[in-house]
């Protein structure tokens, strides 16, 4: 950071006591040999690279490849390796908070899955990245288990009475990801195009993928096809 400014640039937040405490704890831990600066750097590189697009990729591939989907549903932890995620990383034993048991919850025409952790904020970081702020709030934790349809409605998701809303309260060593159903209007799309419409919220279960809503980009339409056309 530049020191020539008379006051801090806008993007630099003022010093907080939490920042001070974290650095104090980290420096003491390193000085005492509890872990090394290199450990911190390696974990940082791993954590910064986590993104929900891995979950999007797994979902899109499952839509196109039934054998992959079967492997993913029967052994999520092992099958994650096929999209470059080893749940044993970055420590060789998994992350201390997430362990290594990963299960994919498949939505069907009759069952809609959604995840919450009422007791803390358990979340499948290796495949979805860091959890959203709202997922960790006591408000979401309090209400999702008891008023799931209301909370889903607040996210804009209204499900019919004959669809079972199945709330998964992630309270032990398992980590979950929701695999939504492939939406209409995506015939002929390739894996990249499909992955682009599977947003993080779809993988938590508070949203459904739509052909006209993409996470980061508008999927390019295959030439000479009408597959992606909005109805």
């Amino acid at each position: 950071m530049s020191t020539t400014h008379s006051h801090a640039p806008l993007e630099e937040s003022p010093l907080t006591e939490f920042e001070v405490l974290e650095l104090a704890v980290r420096e003491l831990a390193i000085e005492k040999g509890l872990f090394s600066a290199d450990d911190h750097r390696r974990f940082s590189e791993w954590a910064e690279a986590r993104t929900y697009t891995v979950g999007s990729r797994m979902t899109a591939r499952s839509w196109l490849d039934p054998a992959f989907k079967e492997r993913l549903l029967s052994n999520g932890t092992e099958t994650s390796k096929e999209v470059g995620v080893d749940w044993l990383q970055p420590t060789g034993q998994g992350t201390p908070s997430d362990y290594t048991f990963f299960y994919v919850l498949e939505n069907t025409p009759k069952v809609h899955n959604v995840i919450v952790c009422t007791l803390c904020s358990c979340y499948p970081r290796p495949v979805l990245g860091m959890s959203p702020d709202w997922y960790r709030t006591p408000n979401y934790r309090r209400r999702m288990v008891r008023w799931p349809r209301q909370v889903l409605a607040e996210f804009g998701l209204h499900l019919p009475p004959d669809v079972e809303v199945r709330v998964h309260d992630s309270n032990q060593k398992s980590r979950f990801m929701v695999m939504p159903m492939r939406p209409e209007g995506t015939d002929g799309w390739n894996e990249d195009q499909l992955a682009a419409i599977v947003t993080r919220d779809c993988l938590i279960g508070v949203a459904l993928p739509r052909a006209d809503v993409t996470a980061s980009q508008v999927p390019k339409q295959p030439k000479g096809r009408s597959g992606g056309k909005k109805r």
């Binding site: 008023w147 349809r149 009475p161 004959d162 809303v165 199945r166 998964h168 309260d169 992630s170 398992s174």
Partner: peptide, 13 residues
Amino acid sequence: DYTGFEVDTLETE
């Protein structure tokens, strides 16, 4: 006093 529907479930470990 559940306000959802009869089919709804919750799973935990």
